[in-house]
């Protein structure tokens, strides 16, 4: 039997056969063995033309160029910082990539210190090991206060919504300042603690029920129902 064995959006576990025959090509999260294509991750089957891939439902963040991420400074080195962005390897933020000019020999911890939270952009990824960040760009900055929550990176598009509709609704509904990093780290800061708590609740609810339909209405009801 050749062709697809699993349908699109079916859940597969590692080692499950997705397609057989040379008509299909293995994409991300899959591998070919002999004539057949198998899944290598727990996730949803995606078919794009001849390409078969698995969209992971869990797992660490895989950095991609251009992503906006929320990270935490874990090391201050010579001319650079190490930033934890929730992937398997920590990212590097070079001294030259900051928004302001820094003199040679300056104390770098004066600009970004341990445990500072930064919103940065991924500029270069070499085989998802060496990840470089930049702070040059609109909205990229060090943030103060607030809290960070972790969500599964694959659920981030759902939290943002189409053209940012979902996140806009949460921001307006709670009055919080929210930044959703592509790495699944969400920074929330509100005027009052209650606002932050509510925003957290809503975002975690979206993460849990990301696969259900009519989620926008559910969230809308929560935001309006509780926030009288």
């Amino acid at each position: 039997m050749t062709g697809l064995i699993m349908n699109e959006r079916d859940i597969v576990v590692p080692g499950e056969k997705i397609a057989s025959g040379m008509d299909y090509l293995p994409g991300n999260g899959t591998f070919r063995e002999g004539e057949d294509i198998y899944s290598s991750q727990l996730g949803l089957v995606g078919v794009n033309g001849r390409f078969v891939k698995v969209i992971p439902l869990t797992g660490k963040y895989t950095p991609r160029e251009g992503d906006i991420v929320v990270g935490k400074v874990v090391d201050v080195g010579f001319g650079m910082w190490n930033v934890d962005i929730g992937s398997a390897y920590s990212a590097i933020l070079n001294m030259r990539e900051t928004s302001e000019f820094i003199d040679r020999g300056a104390d770098l911890s004066h600009y970004y210190d341990f445990n500072d939270v930064v919103i940065a952009q991924v500029t270069k990824v070499v085989r998802y090991k060496d990840v470089n960040l930049t702070m040059k760009g609109q909205g990229l900055r060090k943030v103060k206060g607030g809290k960070i929550i972790d969500v599964t990176p694959s659920k981030v598009p759902r939290i943002i919504g189409k053209q940012g509709s979902m996140i806009k609704m949460i921001k307006e509904g709670t009055g919080c300042n929210i930044v959703v990093g592509q790495n699944g780290k969400v920074w929330i800061k509100g005027e009052r603690i209650e606002d932050e708590v509510k925003a957290t609740e809503v975002i975690l609810k979206i993460e849990q029920e990301s696969h259900t339909q009519g989620l926008t209405d559910t969230i809308k009801n929560i935001l309006e129902g509780k926030g009288k």
């Binding site: 590692p14 080692g15 290598s40 991750q41 869990t58």
Partner: peptide
Amino acid sequence: LAHAGIPMRDM
């Protein structure tokens, strides 16, 4: 391991 999203060839 599967739940952690680690690429595996088999269970």
